[in-house]
Nucleic acid binder design. Structure first.
Lengths: 99, 99
DNA sequence: TGTAAAGTTAACGAATAATGGAACAAAAGA
DNA sequence: TCTTTTGTTCCATTATTCGTTAACTTTACA
């Protein structure tokens, strides 16, 4: 069920999570859904690394409560936070694709 | 000189801008350099779209001064800001790759 | 050259992310 | 079931982005 490594567009995440919806409705929760999608990605990677939220938190110098909020898309995090979690915490390389 | 569309890792951006450097030195300015790299990406895309900072700012509901700060890596922006600029402002789709 | 357009920087409040702690809920194991 | 681990939510405080104006610098071009 877990993907081991992936390129995931936000649209794909939306699709996977909410299914096909109208363009208008989509716009409504897009921002929230995107934050959620990033969180989902982090959660997946963390689990693949066999880490608890607390371990990830310790490694990135924060607390498990913060990790939880991020994974559940409840925080509009800064780019540096994203890097810290993914690279420092999970040892992953992250890159952007713009098209 | 301008790339029309691209997948760019932060490392590639670092290489392009600072050349090969020692691992320790790199760590020192990594965060700053990454913010800068994102800014560079945005600047490239904006220029390819033949827009001024002011036009981009208007389109995304902010001011040119803020766009300038972002493009020059002086602000550790939030994810929502990144989407707003790239998608709403420049009509680009952005996706992440984690490896 | 001079002038206007485009871009940069500083400074300021307002909004909000980041942080830490604690209490609670859910999941996993014995 | 009981116990422990793991994860979630809430609260208060601190730190920083965001939005904005204004002044300054650089670039473009007649």
């Amino acid at each position: 069920m877990e993907k081991s490594s992936s390129t995931t567009t936000f649209e794909q995440h939306l699709e996977k999570r909410y299914g096909q919806v109208g363009e208008e409705k989509r716009m409504a929760f897009e921002a929230k859904a995107k934050a959620f999608a990033i969180g989902e990605l982090i959660k997946e990677e963390r689990r693949l690394s066999n880490m608890t939220q607390e371990q990830l938190a310790t490694k990135t110098g924060t607390k498990k409560s913060f990790i939880s909020r991020i994974e559940n898309g409840k925080s509009d995090i800064q780019l540096s936070t994203l890097y810290r979690i993914l690279e420092l915490g999970l040892g992953k390389k992250i890159s952007f694709t713009i098209e």
